[in-house]
Computed example of a mutant assay.
Amino acid sequence: MVLYAFRYSDGRLFILDQTKLPEKAQYMEITGAAQTAEAIKSMRVRGAPAIGICAAYGLCAEARKNGGDREKLIKAAQGLKGVRPTAKNLSWAVGRMLGALDMPGSLIENLEREAEAIRREDEEANRKIGEYLLSLLPENGAIMTYCNAGALATSKYGTALSPVYLGLERGRRFKVYACETRPFLQGARITAYELNAAGADVIVICDNNAANVLRYEKIDAVITGCDRVAANGDCVNKVGTFGLSVLAKEFGIPFYVAAPASSIDMSAGCGGEIEIEMRGSEEMEFFCGRRIVPEGVKVLNPAFDMTPAENITAIVTESGAVSPKRLKSCV
């Protein structure tokens, strides 16, 4: 089964509502920037590359709705930039769309051309990342991943999961251990869903079972995605990634971060300079519609954490796999 996080066709944008997975694969139409912002904030669409691309297409939908009013589009674009502040791809893609407003010719056509270029570039970057990761992995090995950095977080293939998809195309089958990823359960709900649909061998584990699996199972590599990479190689990704990097280092297992160049922020000197998004308490207070945290008890719910460069074996971009210390060669 072919799954896609979004589709833009004949001036209409549709996204897969990922809050409903795995029970239901339901697509919804996005008709403008305000609805795009809501879909990103509520994580109906998520994954750094995907939210950037959907923001670009959302501005196309907005342009068609408002008749190509330039001032309204600029205001809408500025509003989209800060919806989720941690992922670099969102502000990067919106910046490119703002640049397209100054191109000669039809405003709507220019926006749609730029959005399609962003999508196409992402797909190609993901394929190249997958090629480089395949070269680092045994023929039919086992990997552990965290959150969801697959096809449903990007235009195609994914970043961390790209070698799994390319491997399937070439008869190489990897065993994938997917951490459930509390509290939003992107690993259990989304990674497992898309890999199972693709025919991959996927095993879901509780987050607190990761150490045990890394100790006793033959794991060849831990591969994660990344929402923003600092100039020194520190990587900010879904909260829990840092802990997994510590475990991988303890057990001598390579820890690879898959990130397109659009996720690299050379203006951030280190991970500590990157804003960490805080999510609402309700994501932790309730589970399957049932309250699990007593009323009146405080919760701490950051969406991301920072993995220091020294815990990372290599950052894999479309330009190759490099040590975090040599990151500048990829930009």
Rank of each mutant, 00 (worst) to 15 (best):
E121N: 14
D122M: 04
E124K: 14
E124V: 14
A125C: 14
N126V: 12
N126M: 12
K128P: 15
I129Y: 09
G130Q: 08
E131A: 03
E131N: 12
Y132A: 13
Y132H: 15
Y132G: 06
L133W: 06
L133T: 05
L134Y: 05
S135L: 13
L136W: 13
L136G: 00
L137D: 11
P138R: 15
P138I: 09
N140E: 11
N140G: 05
I143N: 06
I143T: 07
M144C: 04
T145W: 13
Y146R: 08
C147Q: 04
C147R: 00
C147Y: 04
N148S: 05
A149K: 01
A149V: 02
A149G: 03
A151D: 01
A151K: 01
A151T: 14
A151F: 00
A151Y: 01
L152K: 03
L152C: 06
T154M: 10
S155F: 04
K156M: 10
Y157T: 02
G158A: 12
G158Q: 10
G158D: 10
A160T: 06
A160H: 09
S162Q: 05
P163D: 12
V164P: 02
Y165W: 11
Y165D: 01
Y165R: 01
L166S: 00
L166R: 03
L166H: 01
G167C: 05
G167Y: 00
L168M: 02
